[in-house]
């Protein structure tokens, strides 16, 4: 059985709170078109921490990791391919 120690969980919580601070701080810096991407990158980092350390996705094995990535891939297709239309409207 996989048991996560309290210390490690607490450490992750601290990291998550710190990253929340980072993303709020970053929002005060205007990077133009990159604003969204920076925000998404930080959010993805936080999400990865939750997935790995709180949800123990690694313990579940290859199938769950791969299918999770597949879901995210499908989601990015949904968003990305819509832009074949939206980004090219005359």
């Amino acid at each position: 059985m996989h048991i996560a120690s309290y210390g490690r969980l607490l450490g992750i919580l601290v990291a998550l709170v710190a990253l929340t601070g980072v993303t709020v701080a970053a929002s005060y810096v205007d990077l133009g078109a990159f604003n969204v991407w920076v925000a998404l990158a930080i959010a993805s980092t936080k999400a990865s921490l939750v997935l790995i350390f709180f949800m123990h996705i690694g313990v579940e094995g290859r199938l769950v990791v791969l299918s999770f990535l597949g879901t995210i891939f499908f989601l990015s297709i949904m968003i990305g391919f819509t832009f074949w239309d939206v980004a090219f409207r005359g």
């Binding site: 929002s27 205007d30 936080k46 999400a47 939750v50 997935l51 709180f54």
Partner: peptide, 18 residues
Amino acid sequence: HLVDLIWIFIFPLFYLVL
């Protein structure tokens, strides 16, 4: 945790768009 994950994305996208 999933509900939390979704909020992690909603928060910057709505509150912090610059």
